[in-house]
Amino acid sequence: MHIPDAFLPLSHALIYWIIAIPFILMSLKWAREELDDLKIPLLAALAAAIFAIQAMNIPIGMGTSGHMVGAAMAAIILGSPWAGVLLLTLVLIVQSFVFGDGGVTALGANILNMGIISGFVGYYTFVALKKVNLNIGVAAFAGAWLGLFISAIVCSFEMTLSGIFPLVGGLIAMGTYHAIIGVIGEGLITAVAVSAIASARPDLLPETFTGDVHNE
């Protein structure tokens, strides 16, 4: 879902930057307040793993492929949507400047879609489902899937505003492809990773996610 430079007029790219920057600053504030001797290596390990897995495009049929975004996974594991914003900001900067994946001018829009929207929707969906006592893997799957789907819908609107996509055709194509990508590429991987950490090293996850919800 990395938007190239050509897909956004500069004036639009600027607006998405203006929206994204306060979120990036808030993510830095989160990092200063919340990072500790375990969360710093967790952030680094997640950054490396998520970068690598983003290079693994999974075929979904219809001549199309897709890959994980990972903001929801980072937010759940580190216990804050700001973690997803910070991590995706770092990943997207490297992808855009070093590998030409996603435009440099479109970076603000890509951070907005993949770092902010998919992370926030994914994280708070997970938290809400966890509150009603849903299994941690199921909650992680649903959160990650919805996060990716909503960010694809927003991306489609942005492309319509750019004058590139027709409104309905864009929504149908982007919605269909990412609903499928979200199942394996986002939901399943997030569910497996979060469940694995919850059973092997529950102490690494925020207590509210692993403890008995009735004791909160």
Binding site: M1, H2, I3, F7, A55, M56, N57, I58, P59, M62, G63, T64, S65, G66, H67, A152, C155, S156, M159, I164, F165, G169, G170, A173, M174, Y177, H178, I181
Partner: peptide, 14 residues
């Protein structure tokens, strides 16, 4: 990894 275009590019193509 699949070399098929990603969701956004494929949508644009279509």
């Amino acid at each position: 990894a699949s070399s098929d275009p990603d969701g956004l590019e494929s949508a644009a193509e279509g």
